[in-house]
């Protein structure tokens, strides 16, 4: 019997080994395709942006004749994007944080209301950002607002809200019940338990959630297309239109002038750099902050 196993391990072993080899090759190719797409995207954008990448791109606003290829930069879009996204994330956080705390403090996880709220958040997450843009535009008209920083901020906040809430919710749900029970046994009420024990425990997760939402808001173009407008100047009031990086890229790319198109590439490089920066910070932060976790 033993002899049989070593000399003839089974019918068709050669064939089975070949199938294994082919499958492995297919999987490796797929992984390579995925990695190559990222490399191609990054390399083509950096390569194309090099000729236009000057310091004045990020330190100046568009001068006169900028869209004909003359002097200027995209400082308006960089600052505008930051204003818009930070504002939007703040609004989204102000809604999401109390909601998530309530969801995890006062509702039982299987209760009808909790399920309904999570379902609504999933629904909202699934809605494409162009539909948020349309909805934001209708709301804007209803309140007689014009395309402005405020309207853009509100629309982007709506896009970010489900992402922020769901990611925070998932982190908070992972907190072990023992931790809460310990706090209860020391006489803390639910609110104190959540704010002083649970939230402290999941703080890194919350920061990660905020950064994910921030990155999403920064890159979203479809939702600000009708709501934020566009301007060549810096925005100083909530009711003025605001320039955003994705739209700056979009508009400049549609220009017939090659110099302006090149600036679109450079703007894309700036946006990509910002996004990479955020995701790098997210990674290192969540690693650093989770050092002091108890479990």
């Amino acid at each position: 019997m033993k002899d049989k196993i070593t000399s003839n391990p089974g019918p068709g072993l050669q064939r089975r080994k070949r199938v294994e080899f082919v499958f492995r090759a297919l999987m490796l190719t797929s992984s390579l395709v995925v990695s190559l797409s990222l490399i191609l995207i990054l390399v083509s954008i950096i390569w194309k942006s090099l000729p236009a990448l000057k310091l004045s791109m990020i330190t100046r606003t568009p001068g006169s004749g900028y869209y004909l290829g003359k002097e200027g930069g995209i400082l308006n879009a960089i600052i505008g994007s930051l204003q818009l996204t930070l504002g939007a994330t703040l609004i989204a956080l102000l809604i999401a944080l109390p909601a998530v705390i309530y969801l995890n403090t006062y509702l039982r996880s299987k209760s009808f209301l909790a399920e309904a709220i999570r379902f609504a958040l999933d629904v909202l997450w699934g809605i494409p950002s162009i539909v948020y843009g349309a909805f934001g535009f209708l709301v804007m008209l209803f309140f007689h607002l014009r395309a402005s920083l405020l309207a853009g901020m509100i629309t982007v906040a709506l896009v970010e809200l489900p992402i922020l809430s769901r990611v925070m919710d998932e982190t908070i749900r992972l907190v072990p019940a023992e931790l809460k029970e310990t706090a209860f046994s020391l006489g803390a009420n639910r609110w104190q338990t959540t704010t002083r024990v649970v939230l402290r425990q999941v703080f890194p997760g919350l920061v990660t959630a905020v950064l994910i939402a921030l990155g999403r808001g920064l890159g979203d173009a479809a939702s600000v297309l009708f709501t934020a407008g566009y301007t060549d100047r810096l925005t100083t009031s909530l009711l003025q239109p605001v320039a955003t990086l994705p739209l700056a890229i979009f508009f400049q790319l549609n220009s017939p002038f090659p110099e302006v198109q090149q600036r679109a590439y450079a703007s894309a490089a700036v946006l990509t750099l910002l996004i990479l920066l955020i995701s790098l910070i997210t990674r290192s932060l969540s690693r650093k902050l989770s050092r002091h976790k108890i479990y």
Binding site: S31, V34, S35, S37, L38, L40, I41, S44, I45, K48, G215, L218, G219, D220, A221, A222, P246, I249, F250, L253, A264, Y265, A268, L271, T272, I275, L276, I278, S279, R283
Partner: peptide
């Protein structure tokens, strides 16, 4: 080791804004 490369690659792909994808499409 390979996982440590592949997972961030996929995260980065997920994080890139759609206008960047669009530009890549136009370019390549």
């Amino acid at each position: 080791q390979l996982k440590k490369i592949l997972v961030p690659v996929i995260d980065l792909l997920a994080g890139l804004p759609s206008v960047i994808y669009g530009m890549w499409g136009v370019l390549l």
